[in-house]
Design a binder for these strands. Structure first.
Length: 256
DNA sequence: ATGACCGCTCTAAGCGGA
């Protein structure tokens, strides 16, 4: 089973690349972030034509998350929003059950700067995520929490840690709350010593200079770890015509 | 080189992103 997480930076602007991606990889489940759609703008028909159903949490011009499932799989018991999140209208969390997994697509707030009121709200969002995962674990769910966490888990996930001193995405406050979610970082589990990124600033030719961050993660229950076959980043979708500034992360799970 | 993006939209000499 192939699961993908991808911050598309506007699904409307990215629809050609998203459809290209679905046709190429034929993933079973896709977690999308930053869809930037009003509810009525979400491209349900275009995705259905490509062979995918969707559950989307759409908040308008910013944020927005969605889950897609290939025809033949069904997304059941969807839930929209994260209990206890600081701003419920921002559309940053969507859950559904598929193939025995509780799959979540999340877009954690950016935080802007350490002095900004957005920074403590980012920390609160991460705490609410940990609470929700604990609740799901208590209900014996197998959890696959994927998305753009806007946190680089370690200095190895940052092209130049010195440049990020006094910046968001790398602080001990953010990293400790990410760790407290209590799931396994699938990419890092299979690639303990590799430095690879999922996001590169559009500015300054950063992608071509290799200046990025690993902030898009798939966090999985311990019980899923034995099923991890491959985890990789498709950098080709950070290239070419109108790319997102994030590359998709692909997670291949063996059958049970 | 003290430069360099992109997608939104109250279409901006602006905002937000990371």
């Amino acid at each position: 089973m192939l699961v993908v997480t991808w911050n598309v930076n506007s699904l409307r602007a990215r629809l050609p690349r998203a459809l290209e991606f679905l046709e190429l990889h034929r993933p079973d489940v896709v977690c999308l972030q930053e869809t930037k759609c009003a509810p009525e703008q979400f491209p349900v028909a275009e995705l259905a034509d490509a062979g995918y159903s969707a559950e989307h949490h759409s908040g308008g011009r910013w944020a927005g998350v969605a889950l897609l499932a290939r025809d033949g799989l069904s997304l059941t018991d969807p839930a929209f929003g994260l209990p206890g999140e600081p701003a419920a209208d921002e559309a940053r969390w969507v859950e559904a059950s598929v193939s025995g997994l509780r799959v979540i697509s999340t877009y954690v707030p950016n935080g802007r700067t350490l002095e900004s009121p957005e920074f403590p709200r980012k920390l609160r969002f991460l705490e609410a995520a940990a609470d929700r995962v604990a609740e799901l674990k208590a209900g014996d769910a197998t959890v696959l929490l994927s998305g753009d966490f806007n946190v680089a888990p370690a200095d190895a996930d940052v092209y130049d840690p010195e440049q990020f001193v006094e910046s968001t995405h790398v602080t001990a406050e953010e990293r400790s709350r990410l760790a407290a979610i209590g799931l396994v970082d699938a990419y890092r589990h299979l690639h303990p010593d590799t430095q690879q990124f999922t996001w590169w600033d559009y500015r300054g030719g950063n992608f071509h200079k290799g200046l990025g961050l690993r902030i898009d993660l798939a966090l999985i229950s311990e019980s899923l770890v034995p099923r991890l076959a491959h985890v990789g980043i498709d950098r080709n979708f950070r290239k070419g015509q109108k790319p997102s500034d994030h590359a998709p992360l692909l997670i291949e799970l063996r059958a049970e």
